[in-house]
Design a protein around this nucleic acid. Structure first.
Lengths: 208, 208
DNA sequence: TCAAAGATTGAACGCAGGGTAAAATTTCGG
DNA sequence: CCGAAATTTTACCCTGCGTTCAATCTTTGA
C-alpha cells in the first residue's frame, strides 16, 4: 500500500535514522503541497520546494527519484486520507444524510487543516501513465463510495431522485475548490466552513 | 473594455481583413482554452496550441504579443460572459431563488457549451501583476454580485441565514470544477447538468 | 574518538520551450 | 494579373529547470 517509488533507503541500520528520513520526506511533501497548490505542478520548480526548506534542490533527490514522484506521492497520501473518512462515515453514522454530512465535513477539515487534501485538485495529467492509472483508480473508488452513499439515500427516501454522478461532482467540486481560495490566515474559520458546506450541499440554501 | 494588449492591427484597410484576423484570434483562443484546461497554463506549450490549428507556434505572435496575454484574454472574455449572466438574472427573474437558479444554470451552460467559462478556473498566479489585478478585480465584481443575490434572499426570508461568502464559494466551486471532468462526448448531458446543479445548490439533496 | 553511513552542496549538462528576426508564401484590392 | 499587405515559416537565440555526479559536510553508533 505504500508508494513503491520512494527512493529505497539502502538497508539502513538504526530505526532512528529511518525515522528521521521519514520526517524529512514529510517536510518535503508538505512544502511541495503548498507550492503545487499555489503555482500548479508545472509552475513549481524544484528550487521553489527546496527553498521552502532552506536547502538546495539537489538535496531532494536523496528522498525522491524525480519531481513527478513527489507529485504522485502527494496524490497518493491524499487519497489515503479521504478514503479513511468514507470508512469512518459508514461506521459512525446511520442515516445516509448523516453519513454524507460527515464525509463533507471531514473532507473539508482535511482540506483546510493540513492541506493534506489539496493534492486531489492537482492535475493528474502531469503524472506518468503508470502513476496516473493508480491514482485515477483509487480516486474513482472514493468517488464511487460517495455516489453509493447518495444512491442509498435515494433508495431510502432520504434524498431526492437525482443523478448521483452529478450530485457527487457538485460536492467534490465545492470541496476541492477550497484549495483555490482558502488561506489559513484569512477571516473564514475552518470550523464554520465545514458545517456550512455540509448543510448547503445536503440541505440546500432555501428555507424548508 | 477590450483587452488592450491584443497585438494592434497595423492600420489595416479593408474590414474583411480585420474580420478575418478577429476570427483567427478566436480560433487561437479556443485552442488555448482547450489546451489550458487539459494541461494547465504552464503545462501547455505554444507548440501545443499551434499544433491544434495546424500551424507553427511563431504564427501565434502575429495575434498575441506573448503567451501570458493569451491567458489573460481567455480570462477576460470569460468574465465578460458570466457578467452578462448576472445582469440578465436580475432583469428576467424576480425572486432571489429564481435569480440564483438562473445564474447557476447559465454559468453551467457557458461552461459546457463552448468552454467559454473554463478560463475562470485557470490559475491567476500565472498572470502578470497588471493583468492579474484587472482579472481579480473583475472576478470579484462578479462574485460580489452573486453574494449580494444570496444576501437579498436571506433578507427576504427565502434563504437560510448562511455566510454568503462561503455559500458563493461552494456554488462557484461546484461549477468551476466542471472543467475538470466534463467532456462533451461523455454520457452526461449539459441540459441535465445545469438544472440539477441549480436544484442541488439552491434546494439541496434532502427531501423537503 | 573514529570510521562508516547519511545528508547536502556545487558545478555542470542537456534540452525543452518562450521569444526574435528575416525570408517565403498567401491573400487582397484594384 | 500585379503590387502591397497580411500571414506563416524557417532558422536561430537563450534562459530556466530537471537531472547527474563527485566532493564535502554532518550524524551516528560503538
Amino acid at each position: 500500500m505504500k508508494p513503491s517509488s520512494l527512493r529505497r533507503p539502502p538497508a539502513s541500520h538504526s530505526a532512528r535514522v529511518r525515522e528521521k528520513r521519514v520526517r524529512r520526506s514529510r517536510e518535503i511533501l508538505h512544502a511541495a503541497r503548498v507550492a503545487f497548490r499555489e503555482r500548479g505542478y508545472h509552475g513549481t520548480t524544484l528550487d521553489d520546494i527546496a527553498a521552502r526548506l532552506g536547502v538546495q534542490k539537489t538535496a531532494l533527490y536523496h528522498y525522491f527519484p524525480d519531481k513527478e514522484t513527489i507529485l504522485y506521492t502527494c496524490h497518493w497520501e491524499a487519497l489515503e486520507e479521504v478514503e479513511q473518512i468514507l470508512g469512518q462515515a459508514l461506521q459512525r453514522e446511520a442515516s445516509s444524510a448523516a453519513r454524507l454530512r460527515y464525509v463533507i465535513k471531514e473532507h473539508v477539515r482535511v482540506m483546510t487543516e493540513t492541506l493534506e487534501g489539496s493534492p486531489l485538485t492537482f492535475e493528474t495529467t502531469a503524472l506518468s501513465p503508470t502513476h496516473a492509472a493508480q491514482v485515477i483508480q483509487r480516486r474513482d473508488r472514493y468517488e464511487n463510495g460517495v455516489r453509493a452513499l447518495i444512491e442509498q439515500g435515494i433508495a431510502q427516501g432520504e434524498f431526492r431522485r437525482v443523478n448521483s454522478k452529478i450530485a457527487a461532482f457538485a460536492i467534490f467540486g465545492a470541496i476541492n475548490w477550497i484549495a483555490r481560495w482558502y488561506r489559513p490566515e484569512g477571516s473564514l474559520h475552518a470550523e464554520e466552513l465545514g458545517s456550512q458546506f455540509a448543510d448547503h450541499l445536503t440541505g440546500g440554501l432555501t428555507c424548508q
